[in-house]
Protein backbone atom coordinates (compact mmCIF):
# COMPACT_ATOMS: atom_id res chain seq x y z
CA UNK A 1 0.00 0.00 0.00
CA UNK A 2 1.29 3.43 -0.92
CA UNK A 3 2.47 5.52 2.03
CA UNK A 4 2.11 9.28 2.42
CA UNK A 5 4.91 10.91 4.45
CA UNK A 6 2.81 14.03 4.94
CA UNK A 7 0.42 12.06 7.14
CA UNK A 8 3.19 11.62 9.72
CA UNK A 9 3.42 15.35 10.52
CA UNK A 10 -0.17 16.50 10.50
CA UNK A 11 0.24 18.59 13.68
CA UNK A 12 3.20 20.48 12.21
CA UNK A 13 1.35 20.99 8.92
CA UNK A 14 -1.70 22.37 10.69
CA UNK A 15 0.41 24.87 12.59
CA UNK A 16 2.37 25.88 9.49
CA UNK A 17 -0.72 26.30 7.33
CA UNK A 18 -2.36 28.42 10.00
CA UNK A 19 0.47 30.95 9.65
CA UNK A 20 0.97 31.47 5.92
CA UNK A 21 1.60 34.82 4.22
CA UNK A 22 -1.25 36.43 2.35
CA UNK A 23 -0.94 37.73 -1.20
CA UNK A 24 -1.69 41.41 -1.60
CA UNK A 25 -4.80 42.28 -3.61
CA UNK A 26 -3.64 42.10 -7.18
CA UNK A 27 -4.24 44.76 -9.71
CA UNK A 28 -4.79 43.61 -13.21
CA UNK A 29 -1.30 43.62 -14.67
CA UNK A 30 -1.54 41.66 -17.87
CA UNK A 31 -3.13 42.44 -21.19
CA UNK A 32 -6.34 40.60 -21.87
CA UNK A 33 -6.94 38.81 -25.14
CA UNK A 34 -8.23 41.91 -26.89
CA UNK A 35 -5.37 44.15 -25.76
CA UNK A 36 -2.23 44.19 -27.85
CA UNK A 37 1.10 44.35 -26.07
CA UNK A 38 3.33 47.07 -27.42
CA UNK A 39 5.90 44.43 -28.18
CA UNK A 40 3.69 43.23 -31.02
CA UNK A 41 4.80 46.22 -33.05
CA UNK A 42 8.42 45.26 -32.61
CA UNK A 43 8.36 41.57 -33.39
CA UNK A 44 7.68 39.77 -36.63
CA UNK A 45 4.26 38.17 -36.59
CA UNK A 46 5.62 34.64 -36.31
CA UNK A 47 7.67 35.55 -33.26
CA UNK A 48 4.71 37.24 -31.61
CA UNK A 49 2.58 34.18 -32.22
CA UNK A 50 5.33 32.06 -30.68
CA UNK A 51 5.44 34.41 -27.73
CA UNK A 52 1.71 34.17 -27.18
CA UNK A 53 1.82 30.40 -27.39
CA UNK A 54 4.59 30.31 -24.83
CA UNK A 55 3.14 32.79 -22.45
CA UNK A 56 -0.52 31.80 -22.65
CA UNK A 57 -2.57 34.51 -21.04
CA UNK A 58 -0.12 35.33 -18.23
CA UNK A 59 2.32 36.19 -16.91
CA UNK A 60 3.62 38.02 -19.92
CA UNK A 61 5.98 40.58 -18.48
CA UNK A 62 8.99 38.44 -17.73
CA UNK A 63 8.51 36.02 -20.59
CA UNK A 64 8.07 38.89 -23.02
CA UNK A 65 11.26 40.46 -21.86
CA UNK A 66 13.23 37.24 -22.17
CA UNK A 67 11.92 36.57 -25.65
CA UNK A 68 12.45 40.15 -26.71
CA UNK A 69 16.05 40.08 -25.61
CA UNK A 70 16.62 36.76 -27.32
CA UNK A 71 15.09 38.07 -30.54
CA UNK A 72 16.98 41.37 -30.47
CA UNK A 73 20.31 39.66 -30.03
CA UNK A 74 19.65 37.51 -33.05
CA UNK A 75 18.11 40.09 -35.35
CA UNK A 76 19.11 43.59 -34.39
CA UNK A 77 22.33 45.05 -35.74
CA UNK A 78 23.02 46.76 -32.44
CA UNK A 79 21.04 44.41 -30.22
CA UNK A 80 22.66 45.18 -26.89
CA UNK A 81 22.14 48.93 -27.24
CA UNK A 82 18.55 48.36 -28.26
CA UNK A 83 18.02 46.10 -25.25
CA UNK A 84 19.53 48.71 -22.94
CA UNK A 85 17.17 51.29 -24.41
CA UNK A 86 14.10 49.09 -24.14
CA UNK A 87 14.58 47.59 -20.73
CA UNK A 88 14.64 50.97 -19.05
CA UNK A 89 10.95 51.41 -19.78
CA UNK A 90 7.86 49.20 -19.74
CA UNK A 91 7.84 46.84 -22.67
CA UNK A 92 4.22 45.77 -22.58
CA UNK A 93 0.99 47.61 -22.32
CA UNK A 94 -0.37 47.29 -18.83
CA UNK A 95 -3.88 48.09 -17.76
CA UNK A 96 -3.69 49.08 -14.14
CA UNK A 97 -7.33 49.98 -13.78
Amino acid sequence: MRRDPMQTITDEISAILADRPTPRPRRKRYPSDDETPAIATRLPHADYERLKALAGSRPLALVVRVILQDWLRKHHADGDAEIARLVTRPIITRNNS
Binding site: P23, R58, P59, L62, V63, V66
Partner: peptide, 25 residues
Amino acid sequence: VFEKAPCRATQEYAVVVEKVLSYET
Protein backbone atom coordinates in the same frame (compact mmCIF):
# COMPACT_ATOMS: atom_id res chain seq x y z
CA VAL B 1 16.74 29.62 -18.02
CA PHE B 2 15.87 33.26 -18.64
CA GLU B 3 19.16 33.59 -20.51
CA LYS B 4 19.29 30.24 -22.24
CA ALA B 5 16.19 30.21 -24.44
CA PRO B 6 12.47 30.86 -24.11
CA CYS B 7 10.74 27.59 -23.30
CA ARG B 8 8.10 26.08 -21.03
CA ALA B 9 10.52 26.19 -18.07
CA THR B 10 10.95 29.94 -18.66
CA GLN B 11 7.23 30.40 -18.44
CA GLU B 12 6.84 28.18 -15.38
CA TYR B 13 9.57 29.97 -13.47
CA ALA B 14 8.15 33.33 -14.59
CA VAL B 15 4.93 32.27 -12.85
CA VAL B 16 6.95 31.58 -9.69
CA VAL B 17 8.58 35.02 -9.87
CA GLU B 18 5.23 36.73 -10.36
CA LYS B 19 3.66 34.81 -7.49
CA VAL B 20 6.51 35.77 -5.16
CA LEU B 21 6.08 39.41 -6.18
CA SER B 22 2.37 39.15 -5.47
CA TYR B 23 3.14 38.51 -1.79
CA GLU B 24 5.23 41.66 -1.39
CA THR B 25 3.71 44.09 1.03
